[in-house]
Simulated scan of single mutants.
Amino acid sequence: MNTLYVLLALLAVAGWITSTVTLRMRALADKADLLERRLGLVLDHLGIEEPEPAGMDEVRALARDGRDVSAIKRYREITGAGLAEAKRAVDALDPARSA
Rank of each mutant, 00 (worst) to 15 (best):
T3R: 12
L4Y: 10
Y5Q: 13
Y5N: 15
Y5K: 12
Y5I: 11
V6I: 15
V6T: 11
L7G: 00
L7C: 02
L7P: 00
L8S: 11
L8V: 05
A9P: 03
A9Y: 06
A9K: 10
A9G: 13
A9L: 13
A9Q: 09
L11R: 07
L11H: 07
L11F: 12
L11S: 11
A12L: 15
A12T: 12
A12N: 05
A12Y: 03
V13H: 01
V13N: 03
A14L: 14
A14N: 10
A14Y: 09
A14H: 09
G15V: 11
G15P: 07
W16L: 15
W16T: 15
I17N: 06
T18Y: 13
T18W: 12
S19V: 12
T20V: 12
T20G: 05
T20L: 07
T20I: 08
T20M: 09
T20P: 00
V21L: 13
V21E: 08
T22S: 13
L23D: 14
L23E: 15
L23R: 15
M25L: 15
M25I: 15
M25Q: 15
R26K: 15
A27G: 10
A27R: 13
L28Y: 11
L28P: 00
L28K: 12
D30S: 13
D30L: 13
K31L: 11
K31I: 10
K31Y: 04
K31M: 11
A32Y: 09
L34R: 12
L35S: 07
L35T: 04
L35Y: 10
E36L: 06
E36R: 07
R37D: 02
R37S: 07
L39Q: 06
G40F: 00
L41A: 09
L41G: 06
L41K: 07
V42T: 09
V42I: 14
V42Q: 03
V42H: 03
L43D: 02
D44E: 11
D44A: 12
L46I: 10
G47H: 10
I48S: 00
E49F: 04
E49Y: 04
E49W: 04
E50N: 05
E50V: 05
P53N: 07
P53T: 04
A54G: 07
A54N: 06
M56W: 03
M56N: 04
D57H: 05
D57L: 07
E58N: 09
E58H: 08
V59D: 01
R60I: 06
R60C: 01
A61S: 12
A61P: 02
L62P: 00
L62H: 00
A63H: 08
A63F: 02
A63M: 04
A63T: 01
R64H: 08
R64V: 03
R64F: 04
R64W: 02
D65W: 00
D65E: 14
D65C: 02
D65T: 02
G66R: 04
D68N: 05
V69Y: 11
S70H: 08
S70R: 10
A71P: 01
A71V: 03
K73V: 13
K73S: 13
R74Q: 06
R74T: 06
Y75P: 01
Y75C: 10
E77K: 08
E77T: 10
I78W: 04
I78T: 06
T79A: 05
T79Q: 00
G80L: 06
G80A: 08
G80F: 05
G80D: 03
A81C: 07
A81W: 02
A81F: 05
A81Q: 05
L83K: 10
L83T: 11
E85T: 14
E85G: 05
A86M: 10
R88N: 11
